[in-house]
């Protein structure tokens, strides 16, 4: 591809919108969640207050219970789109553990191929895990928000206190993904540009 204006769209507009709404929602949920965590820390440490969102517990809760709608509705739109258009099948399958491991090694030694819109196996696994972590965060979040009205879900999560921990580790998994995702996107500007403009820059 020599002319990026004529380059095919590798990230459709719908996906780009959903991606950036999700980015805002996940960051708002994480930073406000850290403030809520600090009100009653589970694991002998607190998140630096300066990094959190909301200013105090009530403010953080207000943010958390606002951004949750954005996160959940956006995820629902993404899942419906992915299933209806065959996007998930095309982008995420096949997914063989051996391929994932091989591509993961390539990522580590910096030899991985990042072609926007065409994911290597390690990317496919990482994106699916990120979606799974968001789903786990939403389900465990509902379980601790409504331990009476949704008590069947809370029981499925192992009870209220276990659901709190599931919620924490879903956040932790998603946050680790976010760190790797941002680092790799900055190292492969092409994919970052594609997620903004939809087009792939010419590869050197």
């Amino acid at each position: 591809m020599s002319d990026s204006a004529r380059a095919p769209t590798v990230q459709p507009l719908f996906l780009r919108i959903v991606h950036w709404i999700n980015a805002v929602a996940v960051i708002a949920m994480t930073l406000s969640g850290w403030r809520i965590y600090n009100a009653s820390p589970l694991y002998g440490f607190e998140f630096p207050a300066g990094l959190t969102l909301g200013g105090w517990l009530a403010g953080a809760l207000a943010w958390h219970f606002t951004a949750m709608w954005l996160l959940a509705i956006n995820l629902l739109a993404y899942l419906l789109y992915g299933l209806a258009t065959g996007h998930f099948r095309r982008r995420f399958l096949p997914l063989w553990p051996r391929e994932v491991l091989a591509d993961l090694c390539d990522v580590v030694i910096g030899r991985a191929i990042h072609a926007p819109g065409r994911y290597n196996a390690a990317q496919r696994a990482a994106y699916l895990l990120a979606v799974a972590a968001i789903i786990a965060a939403i389900l465990s979040g509902l379980a601790i928000w409504k331990p009476v009205q949704l008590q069947e879900l809370t029981a499925l999560m192992g009870g209220f206190e276990t659901a709190r921990r599931v919620h924490f580790f879903a956040m932790a998994a998603l946050f680790l993904f976010l760190l790797a995702h941002v680092a790799l996107a900055l190292a492969n500007k092409n994919s970052l540009v594609a997620m903004v403009t939809g087009k792939s820059e010419p590869t050197p």
Binding site: I36, Y37, A39, S40, L42, L61, I144, P147, F160, R164
Partner: peptide
């Protein structure tokens, strides 16, 4: 179970 807004 009493659930506090603080999480505990």
């Amino acid at each position: 179970r009493l659930v506090c807004v603080e999480g505990w």
